[in-house]
Amino acid sequence: MPIDPAVQSLQLLVDLPFREGYVRSIVSVSLYVSLIAVALSTLFSIPVAVVLGFNDFPGKGLVKAVINTGMGFPSVVVGLVVLFAVSNQGPLGSLNLLFTKQAMILSQFVLATPPITAISLAAITGVDEDVRDAARALGGTRLDAALVVLKEARYGIATAVLAGFGRAISEVGSVLIVGGNITGADGISKTRTLTTAIQLEARQGQYGTAMVLGGVLLALVLLINAIVVRFGDWGVQR
């Protein structure tokens, strides 16, 4: 009787057949790349969303259309473009980024920025204009009014960051292309992430191992979600 993959993966969790440090190194590469990419993306996206939300200028519709289109960028295409950019002949070739974590961060930044910007922008424009007017009328500067709007939009912005993180950490195509899914001779991950490891294990027929890694990935995403939602509640003293 063939062993059910679920049972098999439970056995693996107990036995942990991985080389010591292997899973930990994959998790840390995944988190390192995704967290840094999403942090950079957030730092870039929120000011852009504030500027777009607070100002009207010719071509604003076009900018928003480009951002919305960016949400649908196929990740393998982004990976390919970043691969060309960081390859020896590419514009960033001199930085020697090919098959490094930095290249993976770059491609995840490109993938995470459109959803974070678009969802933040929707949250910011969704804040009642009266609230912005009130901040100004009570003696606030433009910066004060922007801070009030950001605070009112904090749940939407938290959702935006989560969406960006979700896209980054669950992404396979581009990190495989620009990162190369590499481990060192000691079996410790250099550019192997949870997703690329799962893809590799599954292709080799190691379904149990793949499922354990999948469970770890799922648990990580849930944990980060919980932290961000909790974070969104800070500053509200009910």
Binding site: D128, D130, V131, D133, A134, A135, A137, L138, G139, G140, T141, D144, V148, K151, E152, V236, Q237, R238
Partner: peptide
């Protein structure tokens, strides 16, 4: 000081709203 037709309060406790003008 200005009061609008709609209360336009900030999503915060009452005291936090009232002290906004002092804070900025």
């Amino acid at each position: 000081g200005m009061v609008f037709q709609a209360a336009s309060l900030f999503d915060a406790p009452v005291a936090r709203n009232v002290e906004y003008g002092l804070r900025v």
